[in-house]
Design a protein around this nucleic acid. Sequence first.
DNA 1: TATTGTTATACTCTATAACTATA
DNA 2: TATAGTTATAGAGTATAACAATA
Lengths: 160, 160
Amino acid sequence: MADRRPARTAPDTRHVSDDALRQLVGFNIKRAMNVIAGDLRTTLTPFELRMVTYSALTLIGDNPSLSQAQLAAALSVERPNLVNVIEELAGRGLISRDRVPTDRRTNALRLTTQGARLLAQATEAVRAHEAQLLDGIDPADIATLRAVLGRIERNGTERI
Amino acid sequence: MADRRPARTAPDTRHVSDDALRQLVGFNIKRAMNVIAGDLRTTLTPFELRMVTYSALTLIGDNPSLSQAQLAAALSVERPNLVNVIEELAGRGLISRDRVPTDRRTNALRLTTQGARLLAQATEAVRAHEAQLLDGIDPADIATLRAVLGRIERNGTERI
DNA sequence: TATTGTTATACTCTATAACTATA
DNA sequence: TATAGTTATAGAGTATAACAATA
């Protein structure tokens, strides 16, 4: 009779319970966020944008002549972390960065025509990506999701 | 009449609109996650735990003799990133890490008595922290939140 | 030939201190 | 004295390649 040896070792597929972690709403939010961030990265790659550069473009588009300090506050990031982001977007010709005559410390950030066009294209892709993630979910439940997330944000004690 | 010069420059408090970003569910989830992560960090600091060490302890407690590879999969992190986490928890005497006789490649991870006690204390604090974040929210809406987050997670295409 | 745990490495994100120029 | 933008730096978190031991 022939040898019957396991030619290889199967990966350990025994079921692992994460029920205790799943009881925590924060854990479920983190897992959903991981999935969203991964998908969004893929969605933005063709535009050579990251989450932070896309968010910055959106805020600059909505608030022309925004300063970097204002943008940092709106994005909840520290000012130094924004310098390279701004440098990247300006270097690609997507935003202009003009010194303000009345306060020569500050930069007025604005979308260029090219930046506005790229933002419009990226936004269309992001909206489509969101629609896919939310596919099959009752719009009323999505409204509830928004309301609950907003309430959690306000209930938090950390300055973010 | 006295000089009236602005002694200092007030920070730029002009209102910045983030309405466009707020339309994206992903952005709202990210903001809520930032608040939760910040609060959770504060909650876990007295126990000298981080989110990943707390999650690891919880999973080990629920799945005694878990291997590092299984734990990494359950936490959605790569195996190399778990080595220092395990080293930290074992070094503090919170978990044991025993070679398995039937497969001497793998480690069987278990909570020590001390680890189980710390986990119980930390879990109590985390639950209280969650209750504060969810204060005033209709339990039915929280159930909807869980359901929608789970659906988003399953709708995602990225391997997480 | 494949898996476990590990080492080394690198890249991103984020936070703080301190500098300059401006106010 | 304080703010805007910047530089330098450090710490997390995360990802890949490759190794020795083991299956």
